[in-house]
Structures are given as C-alpha cells and as structure tokens.
C-alpha cells in the first residue's frame, strides 16, 4: 500500500447552502508528511480540513460531492462510523480549547470515550501523550490542576496531547499557533517536526515562514480553489501560479 496516498481528495465541491466554499479540489497526501494549507482568509482552508474528519457534518445545510478517501476508505460513505473516523483523524483547533477540567481528565477524555476506563491503563496514556506533546515536564506536578489555569501555549499543547491520546493516524491543525506568542509558536513548530515521525500532519497556517519551515508539501487556496500544490521548497521558490507567487511574496492577502 506504500504508493497509495494516505489521504486522497478527488473532485471535491462543498456548498454551505448556496455558497460554494470549495471548488473541484484534487490533492493527495502521503503518510508521515506535513502538508501546509495556505491562502488568504475565507478561501476554504478550514473547510477542507474539516472534511477530513467530517466536522462539516455539524454545519446545517453543508453539502459535499466528490470523494475523500483515507486509507482507501471513502469518508463520506454511509457505512463509515464517524466517531471512529474522528478517532483516526485528530484535530487541533485555532483557539486552544481544553475542557474545563483537570489536565489529566482532558487527556483521558478521549481514551475514556473509546472504552479505556481503568486508572492503571489511563496513567501511561496520559503520561505518554503529554510527553509526545512536549509538555510533560511543565505539567507533571500539576496534572490535577484545571487545564484552564495554564498559559495559552501550554493549553494548545495540552490540546495536542489530548488529540494524540486516542492514537490518531492523522493530525489536523487549524492555525494552531495563530493565538500564541512567538516562543510558544516555535515550541509547537518543533513539535510538529517530531510528531511527523509517527503521524501525518495537515496544518493550516497564515504564516508563510511557518509553512516554509515545517511543511513538506504546500497547497495554496484562493476563493475556494486550489491554485497550487507541490513540494514546499518548489512552491516557495518557483510557484507556477502567478497569484500564488504574489501571495507568497506578500503582494496581496
């Protein structure tokens, strides 16, 4: 299966009622790669991201056609258990959104949801997830403090740990650092590089340098269309699309 991409998007059109937010999107994402989605606000980056774990289901009047397959399975197929899909495709939101409970309970929420209840089984998951998210040392003495009592950057890493705790294959990150200070941003960027060994990451970012620094592939969107997709290095050095070039060089957007 190695030559088959992990995520394959084919001819996807998405409508919010009458408004078409995605227009004939085609792209494929390989395992253990970081793919960055860039483009001006409102061009559909978040929307495409939310298709991968079907968070679009929550939006009334949202219709999708075309196919998105993950591991060969069409995610919009009726037989797909959306809860299992979301277990495989984790998501980190733009605004850190830890639950108003202890750090421990935040991390344990996912595993508990999927049937792991015993303390002795949960403890190692919590520890390992926090370690993977690079925040273990900062919170190990305060596991039972409210997750809302730590800084924004720490909250975001707790959210990453929370997503990792259910062992996803794919991690979707929607501008995960846009609400954070530069130091927290740097920490999370480094983290992405480490997580790439075990996960496939799709990251939406407004920050060109961030996309250039951490991603393997970059997709550029404009008004619901994907105008450019390829190796990050190539997209940033010689983009084929003229609008993409102007966006990257800061001439608009």
């Amino acid at each position: 299966m190695s030559e088959q991409p992990l995520i394959n998007v084919a001819n996807v059109n998405l409508f919010y009622s009458d408004f078409q937010a995605l227009k004939d999107i085609n792209l494929s994402i390989a395992e253990n790669e970081i793919t960055a989605f860039i483009g001006p606000s409102g061009c559909g980056k978040t929307t495409l991201l939310k298709c991968f774990n079907r968070m679009t289901d929550l939006v009334e009047g949202c219709k999708v056609n075309g196919t998105i397959t993950i591991d060969g399975q069409d995610v919009f197929d009726k037989s797909v258990d959306v809860n299992l899909l979301r277990k495989d495709v984790g998501m980190v939101f733009q605004k850190p959104n830890p639950f108003p409970m202890s750090i421990y309970d935040n991390i344990a929420f996912g595993p508990r949801t999927h049937g792991i209840r015993k303390r002795k089984d949960l403890d190692p998951i919590v520890t390992q997830s926090l370690q993977r998210a690079g925040i273990w040392n900062e919170v190990k003495n305060n596991l039972f403090k409210s997750a809302l009592s730590v800084s924004g950057g720490q909250q975001q890493r707790i959210c990453i740990a929370r997503a990792l705790a259910v062992e996803p294959k794919i991690l979707l990150m929607d501008e995960p650092t846009s609400a954070l200070d530069p130091i927290s941003t740097g920490v999370i960027e480094e983290l992405c590089q480490e997580l790439k060994e075990q996960f496939t990451i799709v990251i939406v970012t407004h920050n060109m340098q961030q996309a250039a620094r951490i991603s393997d592939k970059t997709a550029f969107f404009l008004l619901g269309e994907m105008l450019e997709f390829g190796e990050t290095q190539k997209v940033f050095s010689k983009p084929e699309n003229e609008k993409c070039e102007r966006y990257i060089t800061g001439k608009f957007g």
């Binding site: 899909l85 959104n97 949801t113």
Partner: peptide, 25 residues
C-alpha cells in the same frame, strides 16, 4: 461551543460530548 466541537473531534458521540463536557461546564 468549542468544548462541544473539541469533544466530537476526539470521536465522542453527541451524548458523550454533552454529558461528559457540556453539562459539567
């Protein structure tokens, strides 16, 4: 609402999200 979305994104059912996160909040 972002608590609710966060819970669903972890694979929680609606019931689980409401009783596990929203009601406690």
């Amino acid at each position: 609402e972002h608590y609710y979305e966060g819970a669903l994104a972890l694979g929680a059912s609606k019931e689980r999200a409401v009783f596990g996160v929203m009601l406690p909040s």
